[in-house]
């Protein structure tokens, strides 16, 4: 038996909205320590990982590890039927072929349940090594969203370079070039509005803007995003989901051939 209860459906709604265009389907791996997901986009250029920890839920029970194959577009359809403030409970019997989602309104005068058919999804699990990055940059997630959106109007790829001057995003295209630099800035009183650049060594990498834009669909989840960069390795774009866990997007760089 698996059962997990969240006090606010909005969190799960935002998570699924953040994922569903990049990865159409994937396995929710449930265990006593929580729910995790690892999925690649259809072109195998990026990897999405999700970790929701058991102690971040209001209630969490998992008697047996299970892999639940989910079509995120279909899960999104069901979650659109939940109110943002509804309590949401996910339930499945051991070896079930469906996941039940129960929504309860705040004053408990409306209760609904939806069963989502589960799929059998073959997926290759990749090992992601713990690693020290050359640069780790925390910035407002809305700022990240704006930068990658603005640059997309100029070019297809972006050169991200982190130096002691700041983090610079550069692109070029048919109409011209663009550079946006963010400096380390701890002036704003609200920590969410600050930019922190933790630099071990300068690093510069090129990425496809299309994917970086897609990751920004996670912006409503949290006010800050973290970018981790190392030469010749995928960038990690990480959004924390409160105390519950985090979603991470790994994007392979473009490398000169």
């Amino acid at each position: 038996m698996f059962e997990a209860r969240l006090p606010q459906a909005a969190v799960l709604k935002k998570l699924v909205e953040a994922l569903k265009e990049l990865v159409t389907e994937g396995n929710f791996d449930v265990s006593p320590s929580g729910i995790s997901l690892q999925a690649m986009d259809s072109s195998h250029v990026c990897l999405v990982t999700l970790q929701l920890n058991d102690d971040g839920f209001e209630h969490f029970r998992c008697d047996r590890n299970m892999s639940m194959g989910i079509h995120f577009g279909n899960l999104s359809k069901i979650l659109k039927c939940a109110g943002n403030e509804d309590t949401i409970t996910l339930k499945a019997e051991d070896n079930a072929d469906q996941l039940t989602l129960m929504f309860e309104s705040a004053n408990q005068d409306r209760i609904s349940d939806f069963d989502l058919k589960l799929m059998s999804i073959e997926s290759e699990h990749l090992g992601i090594p713990d690693q020290d990055y050359s640069a780790e940059v925390k910035m407002p997630s809305a700022e990240y969203q704006r930068i990658v959106r603005d640059l997309t109007s100029m070019g297809d790829t972006v050169l991200v370079s982190a130096t002691k001057e700041g983090i610079k995003f550069s692109t070029s295209g048919d109409i011209g070039t663009a550079n946006i630099t963010l400096r380390h800035n701890t002036t704003p009183e609200k920590e969410d509005e600050q930019t922190h650049i933790d630099l071990k060594e300068p690093v510069a990498l090129t990425f496809a803007l299309r994917y970086l834009n897609n990751f920004a669909k996670a912006t409503p989840l949290t006010p800050q995003v973290k970018l981790s960069l190392t030469k010749d390795l995928p960038v990690v774009v990480e959004y924390k989901v409160g105390e519950l866990g985090q979603v991470r997007f790994f994007l392979a760089p473009k490398i000169d051939d």
């Binding site: 195998h44 250029v45 995928p234 473009k254 490398i255 000169d256």
Partner: peptide, 14 residues
């Protein structure tokens, strides 16, 4: 030019 690498070129199957 630059080539788009596949993500599985960086992470081995677990």
């Amino acid at each position: 030019g630059s080539a788009q690498k596949s993500i599985s070129a960086f992470f081995k199957a677990a």
